[in-house]
Design a protein around this nucleic acid. Structure first.
Length: 469
RNA sequence: GGUGCCGUGGCCGAGUGGCGAGGCGCAGGACUGCAAAUCCUGUCACACCGGUUCGAUUCCGGUCGGCACCUCCA
């Protein structure tokens, strides 16, 4: 399995730290504002990587943190007149909702920064003891960047190139403009915790280092996040961890590309944002997921209405195939398809290429079904791939249509079944009988009325099927 | 200014030193009571200019164009 490691900027063969196991840490959101479509892309990208590693037989420990103490959360809380904790909790819930809709599996561990203050304090103490950090007179603690010689290895920057861009903000007490805060002295009205350096709160970078270390130890396998985090956040994480222990922190760094809007960067600072939850209302959530997966995770992706609508149709094509073959597969997945799928995914998780295997399978499978040939191997392979990609069609859900279905049953003079799904099936039977009797007025009426409810009825060689739009 | 990425057919988007990924769209055809779904056929490209090579979209150099990071950000 080859992965593109940002650390070194090259494709490398993946070797796990411990045979059969993968320890993976992904930078989760700072819960300061509602999720946007960029968050969705990152979450989906790493969710698929996790699923694929499991599919390959690894026992994966998947950690995604929540940064719930930070300047912008504090600012948002002050603006609303509530505590930072309220903002963080509410926003975290929005993220969870969006991710659930996108079929992103919850992480094994989801640590919150505020639950790990003691670990961070310990970490900082160790850095001070090893002379890589120093407490400043103003109560802040800073990491001494120049004390860690390889600084810049991850982002490919040289310390001297960074100097021009660095500066000391008012109120900071750094010895060197490059240094960054590990601990920030408390300001009035802000959340704060006691520490050996007085009351304060942790800096952003130390949070991830401390939590990753706690749950995954040193030299864990994958560290993921958006490419925008590579510098300075990830660079600083590496510096802290490796300065403190002299041992590698994460072995493979994976960075997902950004989501652009019609070619422009999407960012709060530009005001160009697409709200994730809103777009998940506007489009089928799994179509959004497919939209993300059609581009390699490392490349930037351009969000356009056309591209998402394209994905809506492509997804329908996949699902339509699977509906032709109700029930579970009874056969082995096609070895050739399995090999091709794995070859793409083994090549730095090339979901776009892997999707082409899935679509090939669908075309061939449809052709075989049309010809009356067996397709068990095709369906079995489909099920494997669709699950790794997280694109399975959810079970039909018609409970909300129950009253409307009962009315239809009355209109077409049948007994409503207690279960709405069964009622639909009785209505479909009515239509089937009408067709057999060449009473097309009646059969079309049933189909049209069901269509009004969003239930589409299709006649196929093997019988009549229905699904909800 | 520094660092890095990219430029593929009507659109989106993989990939490869020589056998036209895939999806969407469009045009025909098959199937079908109609519809839907499906299948078949066609449309079939690699920004530009040089170089290496028997052969380059794929490697090298240059030109033009787009983007990202260098500051909080998935």
């Amino acid at each position: 399995m080859q992965v593109f490691n940002s650390l070194g900027r090259e494709s490398q063969t993946f070797t796990p730290r411990q045979e059969g196991k993968v320890a993976m840490y992904v930078c989760g959101p700072t819960v300061q504002a509602a999720p946007h479509i960029g968050h969705g892309r990152s979450a989906v990208a790493f969710d698929v990587i996790r699923r694929y590693l499991e599919w390959r037989g690894f026992d994966v420990t998947y950690v995604v943190n929540i940064t719930d103490v930070e300047d912008k959360i504090i600012a948002a809380a002050a603006e609303r007149g509530v505590s930072a904790d309220v903002v963080a909790t509410e926003t975290a819930e929005q993220f969870r909702t969006a991710y659930r809709l996108l079929n992103v599996r919850p992480p094994d561990i989801e640590p919150k920064a505020t639950d790990h203050i003691p670990e961070m304090i310990t970490f900082i103490e160790e850095l001070i003891a090893s002379k890589h950090a120093y407490p400043a007179p103003n109560g802040d603690v800073y990491f001494a960047v120049r004390s860690y010689e390889p600084y810049g290895q991850l982002s490919g920057r040289k310390i001297d190139d960074l100097i021009s861009g660095s500066r000391i903000e008012p109120g900071e007490d750094k010895r060197d403009p490059l240094d960054f805060a590990l601990w920030k002295a408390a300001k009035p009205g802000e959340p704060h915790w006691d520490s050996p350096w007085g009351s304060g709160r942790p800096g952003w970078h130390i949070e991830c280092s401390a939590m990753a270390r706690k749950y995954l130890g040193h030299g864990f396998d994958f560290h993921g996040g958006g490419t925008d985090l590579a510098f300075p956040h990830h660079e600083n994480e590496v510096a802290q961890a490796e300065a403190a222990y002299g041992a590698p922190f994460a072995r493979y760094w994976l960075h997902n590309g950004m989501v652009n809007l019609s070619g422009e960067k999407m960012a709060k600072s530009t005001g160009l944002m697409v709200d994730l939850l809103e777009s998940l209302v506007q489009y089928p959530p799994l179509a959004m997921r497919l939209f993300y997966l059609r581009t390699h995770y490392r490349r930037p992706v351009d969000f356009t209405v056309e591209a998402v609508e394209d994905a809506v149709k492509a997804l329908e094509r996949l699902w339509a195939f699977r509906r032709r073959f109700p029930g579970g597969p009874k056969q082995e997945a096609l070895p050739d398809a399995m090999n091709r799928f794995q070859a793409f995914m083994d090549d730095d998780f090339d979901t776009a290429g892997a999707l082409s295997v899935l679509f090939d399978l669908v075309r061939e499978g449809n052709g075989r079904l049309d010809a009356g040939e067996p397709v068990g191997g095709w369906v079995a392979a489909y099920d494997e791939f669709i699950e790794v990609l997280g694109l399975s069609e959810p079970p039909v859900e018609v409970d909300d249509l129950s009253p409307a279905l009962d009315k239809l049953a009355e209109r077409f003079k049948i007994e409503p079944a207690g279960d709405p799904v069964a009622t639909v099936e009785r209505l479909v039977e009515v239509r089937t009988r009408a067709r057999a009797d060449k009473d097309f007025a009646l059969s079309d009426a049933v189909r049209d009325e069901l269509a009004v409810l969003g239930i589409l009825v299709e006649d196929a060689a093997g019988g009549t099927r229905w699904h909800r739009q």
